[in-house]
């Protein structure tokens, strides 16, 4: 029973990070209908920016204030990266076939990984202890304070995004653009600016996920390590499971994926963990092609 609780809590912790990352994929897909393969690299950069910022400001002691500062700094830098990415790699292909955009995204992703390798080195990096590490037991289950903080931070950001998308004028504009670029443009919505904004917000969330991953695991792998891309792909899978283009769907999908992974790894050979996301994906797409919360799309003939 206690191991069940343990998997549950761990699943929520991992799942909320997937969810945070899934939001970036789902927002871009909702608006531009393509998989932003480079999102996992922005996420990777988020972790490395956080590390570099901590080193730069010589943060060796756990401190909530410093951690918040690093978080905001990494979010700002990743937002800039996301903005540039959209402006110079994706915007020239706005009217190109979707296949071309997808390949470009793969190319950009490979580029960031390998360039990152040059800049940040090819070794595993020990992540600075930005937050104090406490472990306490609840009902026979070990809980790490950093995981609690990660979950709380992730949820706070998700609630913030949800409010932005569904309660503000800007969010209304984003939803309008995702339905039809041309008509949104005719209604006086600055389409290009909204698309840029989508990348900026998604990248900021990815940066937060990067920092939280660093804090949770205590170390980060080199930029071109395939685990980054795999993490990103799983987050995309989470977005698809929840229903692509759907903000609550991404959160639901992320949690669902995190939980299934933990339970599979807990009760079956742990190597199978990497396969579960894709198995879930195939099952969901066959049973509910538009995801759990997605709507049906009819092609016009």
């Amino acid at each position: 029973m206690s191991s069940f609780l343990q998997f549950l809590l761990k699943g929520i912790a991992v799942g909320s990070l997937y969810a945070l990352l899934a939001l970036g994929y789902t927002m871009v897909y909702g608006i531009l209908q393509f998989i932003n393969f480079a999102h996992s690299d922005v996420f990777m950069l988020g972790a490395f920016f956080s590390w570099r910022l901590s080193v730069l400001f010589k943060i060796n002691e756990p401190s909530p204030v410093a951690a918040t500062g690093v978080l905001l700094g990494a979010m700002a830098l990743c937002s800039l990266t996301g903005f540039l990415l959209e402006r110079f790699a994706y915007r020239p292909l706005r009217r190109a076939p979707r296949l071309n955009v997808l390949i470009t995204a793969i190319g950009v992703s490979l580029f960031i990984e390998n360039a990152g390798q040059l800049v940040f080195g090819k070794n595993v990096v020990q992540f600075p202890p930005l937050l104090a590490e406490h472990t306490f037991e609840v009902g026979g289950v070990r809980v790490r304070s950093v995981e609690v903080i990660a979950v709380v931070t992730a949820f706070a950001l998700m609630v913030g995004l949800h409010t932005l998308v569904y309660r503000t004028r800007m969010g209304k504009a984003m939803r309008a653009v995702s339905i039809d670029h041309n008509i949104a443009g005719l209604m006086g919505i600055p389409v290009d600016r909204i698309i840029s904004l989508t990348f900026v917000i998604g990248s900021a969330l990815a940066a937060a996920a990067g920092l939280l991953v660093g804090i949770t695991y205590g170390q980060i792998k080199q930029p071109a390590d395939s685990s980054w891309v795999l993490y990103g792909l799983k987050a995309f899978v989470a977005a698809v499971i929840g229903g692509i283009g759907n903000v609550p769907g991404a959160m639901l999908g992320g949690l669902l994926l995190g939980l299934s992974e933990q339970f599979v790894a807990g009760y079956l050979p742990s190597e199978l963990r990497d396969a579960i996301a894709f198995l879930l994906l195939i099952i969901i797409l066959l049973v509910r092609p538009n995801g759990l919360l997605g709507r049906r799309v009819v092609e016009k003939v």
Partner: peptide, 20 residues
């Protein structure tokens, strides 16, 4: 039943499943 990007991600996932 799938088109474009969805198919892409499923094929990629399938490759990964085989590896795992």
């Amino acid at each position: 039943r799938l088109r474009g990007d969805y198919l892409a991600i499923v094929t990629l996932g399938f490759g990964e499943i085989i590896r795992v």
